[in-house]
Computed example of a mutant assay.
Amino acid sequence: MSLLELRSVGYSYAERSVLDDVSISVDAGESIGLVGESGAGKSTILRLMLGLASPREGAVLFADEPLDLRDRALMRRFRTAVQPVFQDPYSSLDPRQRIDRSVGEPLRSLGLATGADARARVAEAIASVGLDADTLTRYPHEFSGGQRQRIAIARAIVSRPRVLLADEAVSALDVTTRVQVIELLQRLRRESGLALVMVSHDLSVVAALCDRTVVLRHGRVVETGPTRRILTAPETAYTRELVAAVPRLPR
């Protein structure tokens, strides 16, 4: 049983087709990279996977159940289990709220924990991403970009989700910090069995994090398979062009 699935999905925006017959499944503990040029449909797929939009055709399924945005009980289970990490950690954190409030927001909005239990889970999440307890009493502007992204990841994992959906989650970071955040995501996956869907224009990030890669072009899946095979023996001319553009990738 897949945790999350797009089944023959089509999506249009302003009378323009954005996705056409896209099928992607995410199994427990699996990590998937979504790659392709700008406008290929990667971020739209993440919006559908987050339940922020509905497909024109086909279906989005959570634990083999069609996602129905009107079903409050289903959506509560879904939003507990599926959490996002966005590209810009500063804009995703409320500058007026202390970190303990920001990280604990999913617990409050989903009704998962209150009081001492909520405080303990927030402290656990902050420790899990390698930050000190005094982080909780400070504000977003007091941290570096890498630290803010760790805080954003803490907020994503505080509900103990089963799937993380990451949209260019390391692209705004410098090279050293990027490596550190990639290592953090690798560790969290090992320790908690998280599934990960990573949208990235950087194939070296996908190579480091993803078991399987889906290549998109003009809203269609043109190739999918194990990441190492995609990067070392791509089957389509378009994928070969993407791989050739990153000379440091393993051959």
Rank of each mutant, 00 (worst) to 15 (best):
R98C: 11
I99P: 00
I99K: 02
D100V: 13
D100W: 14
D100C: 09
R101W: 07
E105I: 06
L107R: 05
R108S: 07
S109C: 07
L110Q: 05
L110M: 04
G111V: 07
G111T: 13
G111I: 04
A113P: 05
T114Y: 09
G115W: 14
G115T: 12
A116Q: 15
A116E: 14
A116H: 11
A116P: 08
A120S: 15
A120Y: 13
A120W: 11
V122S: 03
V122A: 04
V122C: 01
A123Y: 06
A123R: 14
E124M: 13
E124P: 02
A125Q: 05
I126V: 15
A127N: 13
V129R: 00
G130T: 12
L131V: 12
D132T: 11
D132P: 14
D132Q: 13
D132K: 11
T137Y: 11
T137M: 12
R138T: 09
R138D: 10
Y139V: 09
P140A: 06
E142Q: 15
F143N: 09
S144G: 07
G145T: 00
G145K: 01
Q147Y: 08
R150H: 13
A152W: 03
I153E: 10
R155E: 09
A156I: 11
I157T: 02
V158S: 01
V158L: 13
S159R: 00
S159V: 06
S159W: 06
R160F: 03
R160P: 02
R160W: 02
R162F: 09
R162Q: 15
L165V: 02
L165A: 02
A166C: 15
A166P: 00
D167W: 09
D167K: 05
D167H: 06
E168C: 12
A169F: 00
V170I: 14
A172R: 00
L173R: 03
D174R: 10
V175H: 12
V175N: 14
V175P: 11
V175K: 10
T176P: 05
T176S: 15
T177R: 05
R178N: 02
V179R: 08
V179Q: 05
Q180F: 03
V181N: 00
E183S: 12
E183A: 13
L184R: 04
L185T: 00
L185W: 03
L185N: 01
Q186D: 06
Q186S: 10
Q186Y: 09
R187M: 06
L188Q: 06
E191A: 03
S192E: 13
L194C: 10
A195C: 10
A195W: 00
L196Y: 06
M198N: 00
M198Q: 01
V199L: 04
S200V: 04
D202Y: 09
L203W: 00
L203K: 02
L203R: 07
S204V: 03
S204L: 11
V205L: 04
V206I: 15
